[in-house]
Design a protein around this nucleic acid. Structure first.
Length: 403
RNA sequence: GGGGGGAUGCCCGAGUGGCCAAAGGGAGCGGGCUGUAAACCCGCCGGCAUUGCCUACGUUGGUUCGAAUCCAUCUCCCCCCA
């Protein structure tokens, strides 16, 4: 199957520079393609994983992947989709972040310098000299055109600094440089990058008189309209120190019914027919599809052992029974720390003691399966008989043990 | 460089001397209903404390019995003119 058709069938294609030509390029032999990642944090999040998955697919189909970690462009803030100038990262943070992203990307792609490369655009961007760059590259950009682009429109009303205005030019230059170094002829990315990506396609055509290609992936939103991979607590990260394996598992297990099929196609390697079968499961059986999704993704990102552990913890969480798989919280039996409110606050089930009190008063707290209505309950007596399970709502619980 | 406007809780946004821990909406959390889903209804939504105290309305000072509300200072942002 043609790579383009496969990707489209799975939902990866939003906009492209021309379907026929892309298809022909894929049929003609290995295509060298690239996707850029800005090291604005030291970890990828669920949104990035879509791009990683896209690269993995193309690589499996025999094409050559270049992951660009934008150590150079990240020094220049990207105004796309932002309402104001974002904070500058210092070089120390940049190199830490770049390292973090490299380590993660390495796990999902073959980066042997043959079938895949991992490069940092700081390598060429930092060497640029202003005047030659303006003369050779800058002359190809029309300010008029840039100003009318959607990406800059909002910012023109609120203020756009010159440094941000340069982001697009540098990203375009990346494409040109990758074409020159690796004969890279395809750039992909999220749909919000379409303008920046096209600028690169134009630049390569002007400088090299060669046609190169591009397509974007849809911006994934959930059925309820939220950005995919975002929760109230922020992004859902790949780094277990930022998003625990358990929370990662839960995130995918709890996706909206309407999103399961789409996510299975985008985020797993399961055959399309299998995705369709799972997504069509009736009524409550759809949970099976969610379980597969959560399991696949957790195994892939965190490994089989951690995934199995997360799944057991999830079971324990719901069953409400005491279980060694629940996170534990140790206290001294007769101390202040064994007060229910303190346990709730210290274990992270509640944000503060006040919050804990409100949860109890609102009927949201259970101790060993029994709803508690006294905020000042002390667990000392209960702990005498062994571990006690304290739960808030249905999805969060800890096992309190005596220290 | 000159002139004007603005900064409120996670976000948006009311509030122009006491009735303000601060309207309303969104997000979030809890309860009910469920399938660890959605929708819907109800409650909560700064901290500590068994109805009281503390911290908060960009910063730092000041006026006042009393300030998110008045004055000054600084910082940042926006708009208009150059």
């Amino acid at each position: 199957m043609n790579a383009f058709d496969l990707l489209r069938a799975r939902g990866f294609i939003q906009q492209d520079t021309g379907e026929e030509k892309l298809r022909a390029a894929f049929d003609a032999g290995p295509v060298v393609f690239y996707i850029g990642f800005d090291p604005t944090a030291d970890s990828l999040h669920a949104g990035h994983l879509l791009q990683v998955q896209l690269m993995a697919w193309l690589q499996q189909l025999g094409h050559v992947a270049i992951a660009v970690v934008g150590g150079g462009t990240a020094a220049i803030p990207d105004p796309t989709g932002k309402t104001e100038l974002r904070a500058f990262l210092d070089s120390r943070q940049l190199s830490d972040n770049t390292q973090g992203l490299r380590r993660q990307i390495e796990r999902f792609l073959v980066l042997d310098g043959e079938r895949g490369h991992l490069v940092d655009n700081a390598e060429w961007l930092m060497k640029l000299q202003y005047i030659p760059f303006l003369r050779d590259i800058g002359k190809h950009f029309s300010v008029n055109k840039m100003l009318t682009s959607e990406a800059y429109k909002i910012r023109l009303e609120r203020g756009l600094s010159f440094i941000e205005f340069n982001y697009q030019i540098l990203q375009a230059f990346d494409f040109l440089e990758l074409f020159r170094r690796y004969r890279c002829t395809l750039q992909c990315g999220g749909d919000d990058q379409w303008g920046n990506i096209l600028a690169g396609v134009d630049l390569v055509r002007r400088c090299e008189a060669t046609e190169v290609y591009a397509f974007t992936t849809p911006l994934i939103t959930t059925a309820t309209g939220a950005k995919m991979g975002k929760t109230a607590g922020g992004a859902v990260w790949l780094d277990p120190a930022r998003t625990s394996v358990f929370d990662w598992f839960q995130y995918w297990l709890n996706v909206d019914d309407r999103d399961v099929g789409r996510f299975l196609r985008l985020y797993t390697f399961l055959p399309l027919v299998e995705c369709q079968r799972l997504e069509a499961l009736p009524g409550a059986d759809i949970r099976e599809a969610k379980r597969v999704l959560a399991r696949e993704l957790t195994v892939r990102v965190h490994g089989a052992a951690a995934a199995a552990e997360a799944e057991r913890a999830a079971e324990a969480m719901v069953s409400g029974l005491a279980s060694a798989d629940l996170p534990t919280h140790a206290v001294d039996r007769n101390s202040d720390a064994a007060r229910l409110l303190v346990v709730l606050a210290e274990s992270g089930l509640a944000k503060s003691r006040s919050d804990a009190r409100r949860l109890v008063e609102g009927g949201g707290v259970t101790v060993d399966g029994t709803r508690v209505d006294d905020p000042d309950l002390h667990l000392g007596t209960a702990l005498a008989a062994g571990p006690v399970v304290v739960r808030v709502g249905r999805k969060r619980a800890v096992q309190v043990v005596v220290r």
